[in-house]
């Protein structure tokens, strides 16, 4: 009987302790002076091991050193990244939960279907990675230039195919945008991610694919254009789309965001830590291995990029996916 009582007492004490400690979490205000006083969670809306995850882990490591407390990666995947972004939008706006936001995930998904967040639900901290898109062609493809592709597509509407990692993803909408610019009709074949899509390109089952520069160099693929402002180091001989007469750029990019309404001083601290991290050698090396460049954008500039992408892509999604016109 005595032991039983003691057990009950012990359980009650534990519960009380738990309640008190959670209460203390609730009432502790986040002052920048002592921020961070505990580890920061960084939500990555994609599974561990993918390029977004690797970029997220690299920036988390670099920021841990700068902030002096751990930044812990929490993978919340599913729904094309929307599950993780929703969890982030719902998190407490105290600066202890931040997240990696690829531009496509944060700008496109809310236009695709009803999500509990929109591009306006977040405080923007920084952009820390960027890579221009390269239009790769299948092995043995006759096309040498972007004009060659466009001319053929104009003469044979709908015959050429391009693959994407899924409907409503950044590359899908970018190629749709290019089709409008060039006035060419190319058929969209969506895959479940870059893995199956690239394999289909390498096996010659589809004609075109928007890929990262390192994908093209590492897998001995051939490309017809890079969609950057100027030619890139990795593929010095490849002409830009602009040089070939199509005034368009396209890139993948991403940064850090937090739920809207975090204390201003905390936001500044995170933004400056992110800027320092972007300049570090380690981040450059790790991002380089997955084919991304460490390119910093200030909170304001990154927000403008996401909001303008959201606007353009919202219209494209309405026309291409919801209007049913392929």
């Amino acid at each position: 009987m005595k032991t039983k009582n003691r057990n009950v007492l012990a359980a009650a004490c534990t519960l009380l302790g738990l309640a008190l400690s959670s209460l203390s979490l609730l009432v502790t205000p986040a002052w920048a002076a002592d921020y961070p006083s505990r580890p920061v969670t960084e939500i990555v809306p994609y599974p561990a091991g993918g390029s977004t995850d690797l970029a997220g882990r690299a920036v988390a490591n670099a920021m841990s050193e700068i902030l002096g407390d751990k930044v812990v990666v929490d993978n919340r995947s599913g729904g094309g990244g929307s599950v993780g972004m929703a969890a982030l939008a719902r998190a407490r706006a105290d600066g202890y939960t931040i997240g990696v936001a690829p531009v496509g995930t944060i700008a496109n998904q809310p236009h695709m279907h009803r999500t509990p967040y929109s591009a306006e639900s977040f405080d923007y901290l920084c952009q820390f990675y960027y890579a221009p898109q390269v239009l790769a062609v299948k092995p043995g493809s006759p096309f040498k230039t972007l004009k060659g592709v466009v001319d053929y597509a104009k003469a044979h509407p709908g015959e050429l195919t391009y693959g994407t990692p899924g409907p409503g993803t950044l590359p899908h909408l970018q190629i749709e945008q290019f089709k409008r610019l060039a006035g060419a009709d190319i058929t969209h074949v969506p895959f479940a991610g870059d893995g199956p899509g690239l394999t289909a390109l390498m096996g010659g089952h589809i004609d075109l694919y928007f890929a990262l520069p390192n994908t093209v160099t590492d897998r001995d693929l051939r490309a017809v254009a890079v969609f950057s402002e100027a030619p890139i180091e990795a593929l010095p001989d490849l002409k830009t789309a602009i040089q070939q007469g199509y005034d368009m750029t396209a890139a993948v990019a991403g940064g850090l965001v937090a739920p809207k309404g975090i204390p201003e001083d905390v936001r500044d601290r995170l933004a400056s830590a992110c800027e320092q991290a972007t300049e570090s050698e380690t981040l450059k090396t790790v991002l380089g291995r997955v084919g991304l460049d460490a390119v910093y954008l200030s909170p304001g500039a990154f927000q403008d990029l996401v909001l303008s992408t959201s606007k353009t892509n919202g219209e494209l999604i309405r026309d291409v996916l919801k209007g049913g016109g392929h």
Partner: peptide, 24 residues
Amino acid sequence: VGQDPVTGYLRYDFNVFDLSAGIG
């Protein structure tokens, strides 16, 4: 259940956000 793989439409989600990612 979840996103249509070609059009991206949601199927049988009954306006429940968690269903939009499909059944794991």
